[in-house]
Amino acid sequence: MNDHHISTKFTVFDNQSELSSIENELLNKAIQARDSAYAPYSSFNVGAAVILDNDQVFLGNNQENAAYPSGICAERVAIWSAMSAIPHGKIKQIFISARSEKTKVNRPVAPCGACRQAIAEYETRQKENIEIFFAGETGKIVKAYSIKDLLPWMFDNSMLS
């Protein structure tokens, strides 16, 4: 038996004013997307902004459905929109913002497991890290430097060879 240790790297910003001007602009785009989410069942709105290597920005927000498994998360909407428009583009960064109509979200909201797996697919494909910024409605913002920081034992295409 051998013990192993996994570590992750991330940065925590106290608030949005600590972000660079470009990062601040992208988080604001995620907030705008969040504010037009369709979330009548959970009342939990999420928005995402994806920026590609050509500096094009794609937005997404969660889209719920009365048949719960038929809804989709903001991150996947933004990623798949970007990859549909620019199939060989590379994702540089993803910005995520969440708020609830029921309670104040004052801590960072990380991507769900399905979204982490979708991000892992594209990070593996492009062979370059994707930085992930995630925030609540107020408070701290977390920056992960790679999906591996959020999903260290990720499943990828190497398992299928």
Rank of each mutant, 00 (worst) to 15 (best):
L26G: 01
L26T: 03
N28K: 14
K29P: 09
I31Y: 02
I31M: 09
R34N: 08
R34F: 00
D35V: 06
D35I: 07
S36D: 07
Y38I: 15
P40S: 01
Y41K: 14
Y41Q: 13
S42G: 04
S43A: 14
S43P: 06
F44Q: 11
N45G: 10
A49W: 10
L52T: 10
L52Q: 06
D53E: 04
N54H: 01
N54S: 08
Q56C: 13
V57M: 11
V57S: 12
F58N: 09
F58T: 10
F58K: 12
Q63D: 14
E64K: 04
N65W: 05
N65Y: 05
A67E: 13
A67L: 15
G71W: 01
A74C: 05
A74G: 01
A74N: 02
A74D: 02
E75K: 05
E75P: 01
E75F: 02
R76T: 13
R76L: 07
A78M: 04
A78V: 01
W80N: 15
S81T: 10
M83V: 03
M83A: 02
S84R: 04
A85T: 11
I86P: 00
I86L: 08
G89L: 08
G89P: 03
K90S: 06
I91E: 01
K92N: 12
K92P: 08
Q93V: 04
Q93M: 09
I94G: 03
I94M: 00
I96W: 02
I96Q: 04
I96A: 03
S97V: 14
R99Y: 12
R99T: 08
S100Q: 07
S100M: 07
E101M: 11
T103W: 12
K104S: 11
V105Y: 01
P108N: 09
V109A: 01
V109E: 04
A110D: 15
P111S: 15
C112W: 06
C112K: 07
G113M: 07
R116V: 10
R116C: 15
R116Q: 15
R116E: 13
R116I: 12
Q117R: 11
A118W: 02
I119S: 05
A120T: 12
Y122T: 08
Y122H: 10
E123L: 11
R125S: 10
K127A: 13
E128W: 00
I130A: 00
E131R: 14
E131A: 15
E131C: 12
I132N: 06
F133P: 05
F134M: 03
F134D: 04
A135S: 13
G136H: 07
G136E: 08
E137D: 14
E137F: 05
T138Q: 11
G139H: 05
K143G: 07
A144L: 15
Y145Q: 13
S146I: 00
S146Q: 00
